[in-house]
Design a protein around this nucleic acid. Sequence first.
DNA 1: AAATTTAGGGATATTTTATATCCATAATAT
DNA 2: ATATTATGGATATAAAATATCCCTAAATTT
Lengths: 162, 162
Amino acid sequence: MILKSQVEWVLHCCAILAGLPDGRYLSTKALAELHGLPKEYLSKALQSLSQAGLVHSTLGPSGGYRLARPPAELTFLDIAEAVEGKARTFVCANIRANNPCRPKGYCDSSPCAVARIMWEADEAWRQKLRSVTLADLGEILSQETPPAIWNDTFEWVLKRAG
Amino acid sequence: MILKSQVEWVLHCCAILAGLPDGRYLSTKALAELHGLPKEYLSKALQSLSQAGLVHSTLGPSGGYRLARPPAELTFLDIAEAVEGKARTFVCANIRANNPCRPKGYCDSSPCAVARIMWEADEAWRQKLRSVTLADLGEILSQETPPAIWNDTFEWVLKRAG
DNA sequence: AAATTTAGGGATATTTTATATCCATAATAT
DNA sequence: ATATTATGGATATAAAATATCCCTAAATTT
Ligand code: SF4
Ligand code: SF4
């Protein structure tokens, strides 16, 4: 069970978008080039963000994406779910229904303990991701990244931002 | 990102094994029949449990599996990891290394904030599963399952246990 | 001693998901 | 007008999950 690589991609892209000045847009092309990713496929991931309402897009030259909300209001969970979907990782195939000792037509009123416990673990994962915002990430990255690289990167980005 | 269905299978199987009297074994055939599962493929899942040291097996007629430890010492995490593997769900492809603004040969000392946060979420999932044992599960199931079904099931199981 | 039953492991096939590319379209900027 | 962009559909490829088959060695039953 491994997350799509698109999750990493869009997290990095959002971190960049979070540093963009108000009103500026950054294109798929620039984001793909900056991260060394296949442009067409990254585009699908960014479209997922757009469909989830996390980013706003605009067309034409100087077009691209910007965040739809302030970085403090965008969580890791928002972003991960946009790409990965909101489905739980444990899907219950209801195999207890196959138990030959069950009366025919017996219908279980609710999911059993196995499913509930697995879903609680899923929720713990979600809760952690819900507790971290893009603003938090930006703060950490700006502290940890060597200033030279950090500045060069945003200079590079601004040169390409529409 | 969805867990293998084998995870559900082995959790149910372990719940049954946990109710087995000391020294008795239950075969793959019986476990597959009880849950309505493909015997050969379930066998692979049970072999994973065996390789992880969670169950003990014995050959021949009246052979099969029993738990290797008391139910209170077997956690959901033990069981899930035996089948699903211990790898983290977020794998870092180190795409920041592709950043054209980085000096050539620059080597990042440690994983960045994105990876660390995602790994913390993984750990929250693990922590929840680590906190629930087969003994806990057995207690809940025995309370929630209608007594008639519960008793019939273990009668059925004991008739087939070696 | 022979026949039966079992776990274990290897090989292989099928189905589903993830990854990736290509193209047509409409909107926007210059 | 021309160039550039997001979007969505179609399709192709690679990888993983699901599943079956068969052989072996060990243990039990007869
Ligand atoms: S016992 Fe629980 S996990 Fe298993 S099939 Fe039923 S509801 Fe799903
Ligand atoms: S920035 Fe973090 S998540 Fe992204 S590639 Fe680097 S270490 Fe991995």
